[in-house]
Simulated scan of single mutants.
Amino acid sequence: MVFDIWKQIKAKSFAPIYLLYGTEPYLINETKQLLINNVLSEEEGDFNLSSYDLEETSIDTALEDAETFPFMGERRLIFLHNPIFLTSEKSKAKQEHNLAKLEAYINEPASYSVVVFSSSAEKLDDRKKITKQLKKTAAVLEAKKLNEGELKAWIRERAALNGVQIDEPAVELILTLAGANLFILTNEIDKLALYASETKRIDEQMAEKMVSRSLEQNIFSLVDKIVHRKIEDALRIYYDLLKQNEEPIKILSVITGQFRLIYQVKELARRGYGQQQIAGYLKIHPFRVKLAAGQAQLFGDEELASIISLLADSDYQMKTGGMNKTMLIEMFLFRLQSQALRKNL
C-alpha cells in the first residue's frame, strides 16, 4: 500500500486528504517529504506550506488555512500533527476542536489544498465517527513495523523504484547485515542501486561487498561465529572492531545482550510461545527472534547458562579494572573454545 501511495504522489496524482499514522517513523517522514517535493515547487513552499500541532492549534484555524486560495502557486500543502481526537487517548489540547466543521470539510475538501493528518499513535479509535469518516475518505497509510516478509518485499520494491532488479540471496543477505531499520535499509539499497547502475542487477556478491555493517550486525556475525565454534573467525571480527575504535565494554555488552536473547527465546519457545508472540513479549523485531531461535537450537540449557555466567564474570572484571579490557573478550573466546573442545571429547 505504501508504495502505491508513493507512486501516485510521484505521478502528481494527489489525494485531497491523507491520513498517516503508526509507529514506523520512516514511512511517515518519507511520505511527508515526497508530498513536499511533489506538491510544491521550492519557491511555492515559502508561501503555501503550513504545519499545525493540533494540541496547540484548533482545527478551525487549520481548516481556514486549507480553504484559503494558494498564493503564487496551484496548491496549498497543510500538515496537521497530533490529531488526538482520532484516537482513544485523553486529549491534552489547549484548544477545543470543532469536529462538525472538520466533518463538513472531509465531505467537501478544497480542490486546491492537500491536507495531511499525521499521528504517531499505533492505532486510531475506529469507534469514533470522525475516524471512520476520515479513513473512508482519505488516502490512508498505516505506518506499522514490517515483518520479515514485508521487509523483503520492501527491499525488492525499493530496488525496483531505483530501476534495478535484486536477487533473492542478496535480499536475504542485506536483511541479515543491515537489520530491520528502514532508514538504514533504504540507504543501503539506494547505494547498491547506484553501484549497479550499469548491470541493473544486485547480486549476493555485490551485497556482501557493499553493505555497511553496524556494530550490532558485526557483533551478530561475531556471535554467529561463536555459535558455530569458529573462534578464529570470531577473533578476526573482534580485532576488526577494535581497529574501528569500538570500545571493548560496548562490544561485550552487545554480545551479552545477544546471548541473553538466545536464552530468552529458547525458554519462551519451550513454554509454547510462537515467534510473533515472543517478539511482542520481548518488544523486539520478529526477524531478530527468528535469528535467535535458529542459534538457540545449537545450545543446550547448561551450555547457555555457562556462557552467560562467563559473560557476567567478564563484565564484572571489565568494570572493576581486574584485567585489560581488550584481553577480557579474548579470554572469553578462548574459554568458549576450551568448553567446545571438552564437549567434543
Rank of each mutant, 00 (worst) to 15 (best):
L241K: 12
F332I: 04
A312T: 08
R156F: 04
A153V: 00
E302M: 03
E55G: 15
T326E: 09
Q165K: 10
I219P: 04
Q258I: 05
L177R: 02
L161Y: 08
N37V: 03
E42V: 07
V2I: 14
T326H: 02
N107F: 15
G272R: 01
D190H: 12
K191G: 03
V164W: 00
Y195A: 05
L134C: 11
K343Q: 15
K128N: 10
E30T: 14
Q275M: 06
A100M: 08
S111C: 11
Y105S: 10
Y52V: 09
S120P: 12
V289N: 12
I9K: 05
P25S: 11
E303S: 07
P109F: 15
T131V: 11
L19H: 01
Y263S: 14
G321D: 09
H97N: 11
I231G: 06
L80H: 04
R158D: 03
F71I: 07
S118A: 15
D301F: 10
L298P: 00
S214P: 15
L192R: 09
A269P: 13
Y105I: 13
L185I: 05
R270T: 15
I155T: 05
L19T: 01
G322P: 00
F299I: 03
A279S: 03
S91V: 03
L146Y: 08
T31N: 04
Q165C: 07
Q295R: 02
L304I: 08
N324K: 08
S113Y: 06
I84F: 00
D224E: 05
S111H: 00
D313I: 06
S120D: 13
Y239M: 07
I84G: 01
I36C: 04
E108C: 07
I78D: 05
V211S: 06
K209R: 14
L222S: 02
K266R: 14
R260K: 08
L345F: 13
K123M: 07
Q297Y: 02
I28F: 15
H81G: 00
Q205M: 13
A153F: 09
N187L: 02
Y263P: 04
E96N: 14
Y105V: 15
K123V: 02
I202D: 05
G294M: 09
V171K: 04
Y273I: 11
L177H: 02
Y112K: 04
R271D: 06
A207Y: 12
L35C: 10
S309P: 07
L192V: 01
N48D: 05
I278C: 02
G272I: 00
S314G: 00
S111L: 13
I249C: 07
S111Q: 08
K266M: 11
L102S: 14
K152L: 14
R75G: 05
S51G: 14
K225Y: 05
V254D: 09
D46R: 12
P286K: 02
D315G: 03
R229H: 02
M327Q: 10
L35M: 09
P83Y: 04
K135N: 14
D60N: 12
L99S: 14
R270Y: 10
A93D: 01
Y21A: 01
I262T: 13
